[in-house]
Amino acid sequence: MSDSEQPQDPTQRYPQPEFPQQNQEHPGWTGPMDPPPDHGEDSYRGHELLLDRKTVVTGGDSGIGRAVALAFAREGADVMFTYLSAEEEEAQETARLVERAGRKAVSVACDIRDEKQCRSLIERAVSEFGHIDVLVNNAAYQMSQPEGIAAISTDQFDRVVRTNLYGMFWLCKTALPHIPAGGSIINTTSVQAYKPSPHLLDYAMTKGAIVTFTQGLAQMLASSGIRVNAVAPGPVWTPLIPATMPDTTKFGKQSPLGRPAQPTEMAPAYVFLASANASFITGEIMNATGGTPLP
């Protein structure tokens, strides 16, 4: 058993606030973050749970998406992932991690706010892989507005909704003909879906919609043998935080465990839901909130 698999006090396992104050321009980058996010580079150990699966992960350049791409690869899957054009260097690092695990990495610059780019992404996946076993809708956008609804511009609202909802809808719709029975879709919602923070009103709204979409689509596809689930993270230390939050010093301190999650702590939930171990699980929301109770 590796050190990462030994029982550990979860309150002490990773860095705890207070963190240095740090701010970045959106979309944010991993390198300048203090403490650096942990994606499982030195700790995630695969067990061939996804051997030879063909997977697509949106927002795979950093944060939760990078951790999921790395875990999928170490479980034996090939990974196509998306990134924004400004995140080229981040994407190269994710691709390197996947390839070091001995699996195929395909990085695609794709803005999922655009329907044509979503269609092209799925066409590329089918061209590269032949089919799609697992689609992970993880890419998201948020921007904190402490002054409330009056400060949320129409442009911001449109970006949040198109990234978090339209992209997920288009990708699911386009991918479904290429997902065989036994395949699955995994969406990323949030603790914000149930306990919305006022400064993230528009973001929280979309995360609530993802819960409903997941549960409805799961019922629609059950008879086809395709499972649809979601993961609801609590606070997670990713580049989105210094890029969208005005105060990073106490981020995650409000969770019962007293700290934010590291991206690697989210990855096992996606692996489980993608694997045959979850064959009787569909329409479920797996909460990974650090102890915040949810419905």
Rank of each mutant, 00 (worst) to 15 (best):
P10R: 08
I122T: 06
A105C: 11
Y203E: 04
S275Y: 08
R66P: 00
W237T: 02
Q262G: 00
M80E: 05
S62P: 11
E88K: 15
I186A: 03
L165C: 09
Q16D: 07
T30C: 05
G252W: 01
S107G: 13
A175R: 02
V211I: 13
M266C: 13
V108P: 11
A139S: 05
R159E: 09
A125D: 10
R53M: 14
I185Y: 02
S43F: 09
I186D: 00
F81H: 02
C110L: 10
K54G: 03
V57P: 03
A67M: 08
F129D: 08
I64A: 10
D158S: 14
V57Y: 02
K104Y: 06
F251S: 01
R100S: 15
N277E: 15
Q215A: 08
Q21E: 11
F169K: 10
P239E: 06
A204I: 00
L51C: 07
F129G: 02
A243K: 03
L240M: 15
F280P: 00
Q262E: 15
P242F: 11
I285L: 07
A140W: 00
A232W: 02
S255L: 12
E18P: 15
S43W: 08
S85Q: 14
E18I: 08
K173C: 04
K250W: 05
D3K: 14
E128C: 08
S275G: 09
R96C: 09
T55A: 01
G130L: 09
S279L: 04
Q156I: 04
S120A: 14
E99I: 06
S2T: 12
A109N: 14
R259K: 12
F72Y: 08
S153C: 02
Q12N: 13
I64T: 06
I285C: 10
R159V: 01
R13H: 12
G234K: 05
E88V: 13
K250G: 11
A175H: 01
A175E: 01
E90I: 09
W29P: 01
D38H: 09
F251R: 03
M286E: 09
R113L: 06
P295N: 00
A274N: 00
V56P: 05
T163M: 02
I241H: 05
Y166M: 12
G258M: 02
T154I: 14
W237F: 02
T94M: 10
L221Q: 15
R13F: 10
Y141N: 13
H47E: 15
M266I: 13
L51D: 13
V68Y: 01
A193M: 11
S190M: 00
P233S: 07
V271P: 04
Q12F: 13
A204N: 04
S2Q: 13
D155G: 03
Q12Y: 10
L257Y: 14
K54M: 01
